[in-house]
């Protein structure tokens, strides 16, 4: 019997937590609990990111998602969580349809996931070194790709390859666009959510 692979063990742990709480989000009908389960699930996902060697993304997940977005959601929950809306039951028929359709989608995705040979686990675990990807990601945003050095070199050597460049292609433009987008969104959100003059239930 081989010794237990710590990496695999951790993966299983995080994966189980992430999946279980994701399912819990679905199953519970109490919106407050839902929010909590979602936090746990997303947190565990961050752990998965770390395990996959994406430490920066994992950190962002924790900071932006768990720390930011979910706080926003919790606020929303708190603002709307009045008696009848805390737990709203769905009719059983919808559950059945959702279960059937969902399980068929799940079956489809799972069968695809395990079908492609290239996605099978490597024969032996690769040595995992502690790495910091933030600087590489930063470089990547600006168009300096640490991971594409060979390609870049090849393109430099042979200009015909450069036409559809695979080498030093960065994400500066999207990055800028997103920054502006974020700004616009925040303003819009603030505008939408501002209190109206005329407040009160139109219908019971």
């Amino acid at each position: 019997m081989d010794s237990i692979n710590v990496h695999s063990l951790l993966f299983l742990l995080f994966a189980a937590v992430a999946c279980a709480f994701a399912v819990a989000v679905v199953v519970t009908s109490n919106v407050v609990r839902m929010a909590f389960y979602l936090v746990v699930s997303l947190g565990a996902t961050a752990g998965l990111y770390f395990l996959a060697g994406a430490d920066f993304v994992g950190a962002m997940q924790l900071m932006i998602y768990v720390g930011g977005t979910l706080v926003l959601l919790v606020f929303g929950v708190m603002l709307t969580a009045q008696g009848p809306f805390i737990s709203m039951r769905t009719r059983a028929g919808e559950w059945i349809i959702a279960a059937v359709v969902g399980s068929s989608l799940l079956g489809l995705l799972l069968s695809t996931a395990f079908r492609v040979d290239a996605w099978k686990p490597p024969a032996e675990a690769r040595e995992q070194t502690a790495s910091v990807t933030s600087s590489r990601l930063g470089g990547g945003l600006l168009g300096y790709r640490v991971d594409r050095m060979e390609q870049a070199a090849a393109e430099q050597a042979d200009p015909t390859l450069a036409k559809n460049s695979q080498g030093m292609s960065g994400y500066l433009m999207p990055f800028e666009v997103i920054s502006v987008h974020l700004l616009v969104v925040l303003i819009a959100a603030a505008y939408l959510a501002r209190p109206k003059k005329r407040v009160g239930p139109r219908e019971a």
Partner: peptide
Amino acid sequence: LLTEPIGISHYLAVGAVM
């Protein structure tokens, strides 16, 4: 699962469930 290394498939499975 405990002794073998993890592959993309496993991540995809987690993604699929979520």
